Simulated assay, not measured.
Amino acid sequence: MRPVIPYVTAALLFGLGVYGVLRRRNAVLVLMAVELMLNAVNLVLVTADTTVRSELPHGGQVFALFVIVLAAAEVGVGLAIVLQLYRLRASVAVDEVPLTEPPATLAPAGAGTIEENR
């Protein structure tokens, strides 16, 4: 087997995933793009395992299984965050998510300072 074809396919998948992460506004589509990138990494790991001799037998396949487990956990946590975002904002647009909270007011409006209230 020529390892060039899987490596080029993995590079295309990874590039498509990066494009999806950088260009998409919908959080679910961003999660799907991250999954594409993880699948590209799995393809590289398995291809390298079959073409390169190493002391660890089936090391690439074992690492690919770990990546699959991490991807499943990422999907679970990511979808929970997206659902909570949808409940709060009624939208899953990533560019509308506030990254900082507005400053909390310490005193109600018109309360004045401590010296004024004495």
Rank of each mutant, 00 (worst) to 15 (best):
P103E: 08
V44E: 09
P6Y: 04
D95M: 05
A107I: 11
E35S: 13
R25Q: 07
G76W: 15
V4K: 04
V52A: 09
A71E: 08
A90D: 14
I114S: 09
R2K: 12
T47D: 12
H58I: 08
V4F: 12
R53E: 14
L16G: 06
G17T: 06
R118A: 13
T113S: 11
G15I: 01
G20I: 07
R23S: 14
L79E: 05
T113Y: 06
N117R: 15
G112P: 03
L79V: 13
V44S: 09
G17M: 02
N26W: 08
V97H: 10
A73C: 10
L99H: 12
V52M: 14
Y86L: 10
T50D: 05
V67I: 07
T9Y: 05
Y86E: 14
Q61P: 03
G15W: 01
L36A: 11
T9S: 10
I114F: 15
T50L: 14
P98Y: 09
V18F: 09
N39Q: 14
E101H: 06
A90H: 14
Q84A: 14
V44W: 04
V94P: 06
N26M: 00
F63P: 05
P98H: 06
L43C: 04
E55D: 12
G78K: 00
L12D: 03
R87K: 11
V52I: 15
A93V: 06
A27T: 07
A80T: 09
G15N: 01
Q84C: 04
A107V: 15
N26H: 14
V77C: 07
F63H: 03
N117C: 09
V82M: 02
V46L: 09
V69G: 01
I114W: 13
L31A: 10
T50Q: 12
I81A: 14
L85K: 10
P57I: 07
V97Q: 11
Y7E: 10
A64P: 05
S91V: 00
T9N: 08
G76P: 03
L16D: 00
L36R: 07
T50E: 11
L99V: 11
A73T: 09
R89T: 01
V18S: 11
V82R: 05
E55L: 15
L85G: 15
A80S: 12
R87L: 06
V94Q: 12
V62L: 14
A93H: 10
E96P: 00
T51C: 06
L83C: 03
G20D: 04
R2N: 12
H58E: 08
T47S: 12
Y7I: 12
A73F: 13
P103L: 10
D95R: 05
L79A: 00
L16E: 01
P108M: 03
G60C: 00
L13R: 02
F14M: 09
L99M: 03
G76T: 15
A73R: 01
G76M: 13
G59C: 01
N117D: 15
D95K: 02
R87Y: 04
D95I: 00
E74V: 08
A73L: 13
M37F: 01
V75Q: 12
A33R: 11
L13E: 06
L56C: 06
F14E: 07
L22N: 05
V77L: 13
